[in-house]
Design a protein around this nucleic acid. Sequence first.
DNA 1: GAGGCATCAGCGTA
DNA 2: CTACGCTGATGCCT
Length: 647
Amino acid sequence: MDSELLDVQPLRTLAPMFPSSSVVETFSVPGGGPFIYVRPSGPNFLSPALPPPFPSFPTTPQQAPSIDNHHEPVAMSGHASASGRQVKGRMRVSGHKIGTSGTDTSSAGSSKVKQSRKQLQQRTRTHGIGPALVPSCQDPRESAEIVLMAFDALRRWLLQQEEAKEGKDGNRRPDLKAGNVLMTNGLRANMGKRMGPAPGVEIGDIFYFRIELCLVGLHAPTMGGIDYMTSRFGDGDDTVAVSVVSAGVYENEEGDADVLIYSGQGGNSYVDQKLEKGNLALERSLHRGVYVRVVRSAKDCSCPTGKIYIYDGLYKVEESWVVKGKTGYNVFKYKLLRKPEQPDGIATWKKIQKWKDNPGARGRIILPDLSSGIENLPVFLVNEVDDEKGPSHFEYVTKVKYPRPLSSHKPLECCRCPTACLPGDADCACVHANGGNLPYSSGGILVSRKPLIYECGASCSCSTNCRNRLTQKGTAIRFEVFKTTNKGWGLRSLDPIRAGTFICEYTGEIVEEVGLGNDDAEEDHYIFQAAGADDKALKWNYGPELLGEPSVDNSSESFGSLALRISAKKMGNVSRFMNHGCSPNVLWQRVLHDHSDEGYPHVMFFAIKHIPPMTELTYDYGLSGGDRSHMEKQCLCGSPKCRGRFG
DNA sequence: GAGGCATCAGCGTA
DNA sequence: CTACGCTGATGCCT
């Protein structure tokens, strides 16, 4: 059952997962930049003398994203690079609405800045926002990522609070509440509108809430589908569209991934749409030939809204016309054409859909199911890089193998909930064991990282549908083990993965602590060793702090090392193919569910952030101790924050 | 019982 | 200040 031998005979041995022959990566300080305390309500909060609160963006001319980075100029070439525009753009781009120096106020945007400061002061006072603990950073990608992580941490926390309440009064929209808190604290990326790409946001990035698009500067309106701004052109100012969100509600179906037919805004079943606001802006964009950011949506049953937003890059408005809607009133239509030679965005989704419908359509498949039917869903094994026919063989198991029976001197807490455990239930023993709340939200999302999670077990009276039985049910993700270009085999998903989603367990056999310098240990590249939690995993919990609430326990000690080593050399599951990353998208979490021995918790992986399909999954292998330096390997993760080595 | 429709609070921006 | 919108959650209706 668990143990079925994989019958892949590799042509050669497993390619080194961590080759040592390549360029030395630059070192960066482990743990990233310094932390800055921002005291929103203190007298110095708005003082320019303080270091700017996060995110702090590059402001040097060569680093500052230029406003005219969106063309390929067309007929009006050179229009958008008027110097006045650039200066204004950079001022806005600099990002610190709150902390910027006085020089900014001499520019055209001064009154706006002052106004928002005033608003901020008022709002923060009423909200009583406490110190925000945020790092400063230079990399726009990382800035956007931290903003989104902070948003989701706060959102999850608010949702948890909400779900624990008996009455359903209060804020039913934790997404808006969390977004508002971040906005008023200036915790956002790419503040100020711009044309062209949003630095730090890449094509294919996915979002689960409209407010997330606002936070990273992709699309400002919280509801509206068309965002626009007045920009200077060679022959004067003009108001052009900067981004559109295609939510699919107007049924813009179109087979071609490079074409988007977009309906205008306004009007309804009884009123014509007018050529104003967004509609007018799209019309002006057509005439100016400027690029417009496009966010498309895809159906996804795994999230409550059933919809995911995908950034699909730049498009140009090619054509516009008017049609009569169902009830006979005018609707504007715009044909947008995708800028050539951009990485795949929505096209990847369409490809994957084909593969799911017909696995035969997926080329270069070595095995249609690496797990031989043991996993809930088949695991593709593919190689699109070279001729290697697969990893060296191993036994595919979905459970951990223990060397000896575990001590169960202390029975695992068990609850007597009739059907399902509820977060606010003070009588639920499992709620109690987890520190007063359930670790997962109703949607099956990890709320915050904990030293140890107690899921409901066999002795609990609740049903298998209880939300506190998540990881024990196994993975629900369509995986693909694939050959990377330089790191041996890797793991990725065909499905989009929302932040906090359970990914899989690290299975294998428990190996007892071996003596240092043991040769066997050096050979085993498939050891999971619980080193201290990495920087990003620790930051994952920051949510309550943004509201001035006491933080959850984030000390490294409680997440620290564990005398637990799991080897997946001979047996394991997909997680044995997960490579190390210094900017990982996966974290691990200890979980107990089938026994009570805290020395041997299950190691469960969860998504740190939203992970688009076909993105390699990585977690931080951790820093090995100095005495294990011989086990360190050169890192090829390619992250700007790469530490260079890991152990 | 799934899915369509109406309703409503809520947000940043013009 | 107010109005607007390709939200998102909920409840009621087929």
